[in-house]
Amino acid sequence: MSEFLQHLINMLVLGGTYALLGIGLTLIFGIMNVVNFTHGVLYTFGAYIMFIVVQQLGLNFFLALPVAVLAGWLLGAAIELTLLRPLRGSDIDTTMLVMIGAWIAMQSGTLWIWGGVAKSVATPFPEAPLVLGPVSVSWLRLFVLAAAAMLILVTYLLINKTSLGRAMRATFQDHDTASLMGVNVDMIYTSTFAIGSSLAAAAGALLGPVYVIFPQMGDLAAVKAFAIVILGGLGNITGAVIGGFILALAEELGAGYVSSGYRDAMGFLIIIAVLIFRPTGLFARAERVG
């Protein structure tokens, strides 16, 4: 029983960051319809910003987090302005190829700047874990869960309760009508991509100190983010959050009770199952086609 409780606690902590990765990608992949291969690199980028600010500049850990989010926002905006804007209206394959190129170039860039050897970031949290009866959890991971929950809430409110969010939803439902209604469509494209990117950077900044930081760390994260988005239904924020927790649960229980060798295969098994039984995702709204 205590093992099961421990798995549940691990699932909560892991799920929070998966959800953060998922909502960032669902904004870009689901709502904007861009197959964003740079999502994992933005995740890596956020982690390296933490490394620069905390380890190299010696500044405060909590200050580094908003810096990483802002840096992710700026890099995302730059990608949208330089790569995606000229390609708007071109077919999905062209965009996909350009994004694959951007992914490879940026990953090689991180390798070139920081080298392949993993870096770690010191945190202000105590080493001794919080012990609750039979289960224990590190303070750092609790903080990560709380920060992820806050970011998810902010994103949810931004999309559903603000005029920017309304303009975003309008733009991606019907680009021309939104434009006729006075929405600055160009600005909406850039900010949506930037927000999605900043969430990926935030996830990397939060998880970098938990694990270690290296140039390829984003690859597996990106694959998981795609799994979460497909699981939750394209463009569905609530779906992405729940999808993140389902993936974490499947990995924890899969590793704990089935076979630890297949832990990272769980995400793919889920994608296959979802595509067979509910191709639009678990939480997709009924959608008009065509």
Binding site: L14, E252, G254, A255
Partner: peptide, 8 residues
Amino acid sequence: DMSAQLSK
């Protein structure tokens, strides 16, 4: 993340 294996 090896928490699942370590929990077991």
